[in-house]
Amino acid sequence: MDDPISFARQLRREQTLPERRFWGLVGPWREAGLHWRRQAPVGPYVVDFVCKSQKLVVEIDGDTHYSDAGIAHDERRTAFLKERGYRVVRFTNADVMQRGDGVFTVLMELLGEPGSES
């Protein structure tokens, strides 16, 4: 990934169904004024979702994240992000698609009620 910005743009254009669903789940916080970015460069990495004001990164993990190489890459990326003060939360594609209420509950635990952070 020589150019994280171009790569991020490509990923935004080719968003997966679980990523689109997650974008809808964070809608109440976006409407309340929290700024979220999709497929955003953070250092040398492109994270799935980030709310910089809350220092929160959310990753939606598909099958490639569960190979040995994927796990090692995710560990390096998570360490990099945590060194910069970010909290990193991971959900599987299935979590987002089949347990959206649970994902929403986790977000409420991390961010509070939409609009309460103002």
Results as ranks from 00 to 15, higher is better:
Val50Gln: 04
Leu34Gln: 12
Val46Leu: 03
Lys52Ser: 14
Gly33His: 02
Tyr45Pro: 02
Glu59Pro: 10
Ile60Lys: 10
Tyr45Lys: 03
Pro41Asn: 00
Trp36Lys: 09
Gly33Leu: 07
His35Ile: 06
Val58Gly: 14
Pro44Ala: 04
Glu59Lys: 07
His35Pro: 01
Gln39Leu: 01
Pro41Asp: 00
Gly33Lys: 02
Glu31Val: 13
Arg37Phe: 06
Cys51Thr: 14
Ala40Phe: 02
Gly33Asn: 07
Val50Pro: 09
Glu31Phe: 13
Val46Glu: 00
Asp61Trp: 05
His35Gln: 03
Gly33Gln: 09
Pro41Trp: 00
Arg38Pro: 10
Phe49Ala: 04
Cys51Phe: 14
Glu59Cys: 11
Val46Ala: 02
Arg38Cys: 12
Ala40Arg: 04
Arg38Val: 08
Ala40Thr: 00
Phe49Leu: 01
Ser53Val: 13
Arg38Asp: 10
Glu59Met: 13
Pro41Cys: 06
Ser53Tyr: 07
Ser53Ala: 15
Glu31His: 15
Pro44Ile: 01
Glu59Phe: 02
Gln54Trp: 08
His35Lys: 11
Leu34Met: 15
Lys52Arg: 15
Pro44Thr: 05
Val50Cys: 06
Val58Leu: 10
Val58Gln: 08
Val47Tyr: 03
Val42Ser: 04
Pro44Gln: 04
Val50Asn: 06
Tyr45Gln: 01
Leu56Gln: 03
His35Val: 03
Val58Tyr: 10
Ile60His: 12
Cys51Val: 14
Arg37Tyr: 09
Ala32Ser: 15
Ser53Asp: 14
Val57Thr: 08
Arg37Glu: 14
Lys55Trp: 10
Glu59Gln: 13
Pro41Thr: 00
Arg37Trp: 06
Arg37Gln: 14
Gln39Glu: 10
Val46Asp: 01
Lys55Val: 03
Val42Ile: 12
Arg37Cys: 12
Pro41Glu: 05
Leu56Ser: 07
Lys55Met: 12
Pro44Asn: 06
Leu56His: 02
Asp48Asn: 09
Val46Met: 00
Arg38Ala: 13
Glu59His: 09
Ala40Ile: 00
Cys51Tyr: 13
Arg38Glu: 11
Lys55Thr: 09
Asp61Gln: 11
Tyr45His: 07
Glu31Cys: 11
Gly33Glu: 09
Val46Gln: 00
Arg38His: 13
His35Asn: 05
Leu34Cys: 11
Gly33Pro: 11
Ala40His: 10
Lys55Pro: 04
Asp61Cys: 09
Val57Gln: 07
Gly43Met: 05
Ile60Thr: 12
Phe49Lys: 01
Arg37Pro: 10
Pro41Val: 03
Asp61Thr: 03
Cys51Ala: 15
Val57Ala: 05
Asp61His: 11
Val50Met: 04
Leu34Arg: 08
Cys51Glu: 12
Gln39Asp: 04
Cys51Trp: 11
Ala32Ile: 09
Gly33Asp: 08
Cys51Asp: 12
Gln39Tyr: 00
Asp48Cys: 03
Tyr45Leu: 04
Lys52Val: 14
Val42Lys: 04
Tyr45Gly: 02
Gly43Asn: 12
Gly33Ser: 07
Glu59Ile: 02
Gln54Ala: 15
Val50Arg: 06
Glu59Thr: 06
Glu31Gly: 15
Asp61Tyr: 05
Ser53His: 05
Leu34Ile: 14
Arg37Met: 11
Trp36Thr: 11
Gln39Asn: 10
Trp36His: 11
Asp61Ala: 06
Leu56Val: 04
Val57Met: 05
